[in-house]
Amino acid sequence: MPANPLLKVSGLHAGYGEVEILRGIDLEVGQGDIVAVLGSNGVGKSTLNLALSGIVKARQGTIEFDGHAIHRERPPAIVASGLIHVPEGRRIFPNMSVSDNLDLGSYRRAAKHRAQNRERVFAIFPRLRERATQRAGTLSGGEQQMLAIGRGLMAEPKLIILDEPSLGLSPLLVEEMFGMILRLNKEGLAVLLVEQNVVQSLDIVHRAYILEHGSIVMSGTPDELRSNADLKRAFLGL
């Protein structure tokens, strides 16, 4: 556990209407860390992300980011503080060009460094440079995922949350995507990777949390988790 975590979630409860989805989540991400939240469909992964970014209100518990409590903040303030969430399903702006999509990544934060950050994103994803003037809705699934991450990077995140970045990609692209996420982390970016893809996620993260029915049921280093009999049975099919 990091001594002075960048993100610290304690006893978080959240849900929709009568339904409580998250039932007391505790979780930490340190500076420069790469941490995974793993679990199958419908266990509350996306709700957790939406609560972290202020879209879904926290009902109980606290979220501290970079030394400040953010669980009562609205989404724009959370983006301004440097917590950037790249959502499941990419959520790019299909009617706008690739470069307009990137520009909007710096709508709230790092607008001054826009040109230079765009160059950086193009260096990471050369495909986006080739398609800079193309409408984002016409990109392939993999390119849209690159664009979604690129848009997130435009805000110079302190922590980037990646929700299911491997969803719907070919095995080869998944491999490439995980390699790229690892490289971003090696350059110092803290990453919270939220995935169903347990095996490949465990290959690149420092620590992981296993989420089931809205609670963390296990956590530890990849080695600890891989040797856990329950996890093997439930997720790895071994």
């Binding site: 970014s53 983006v79 790249v86 702006f93 909007l104 709508y107 709230r108 848009r151």
Partner: peptide, 9 residues
Amino acid sequence: LGAELSGID
């Protein structure tokens, strides 16, 4: 949602 997560109010 994509707009909100980009910090657009």
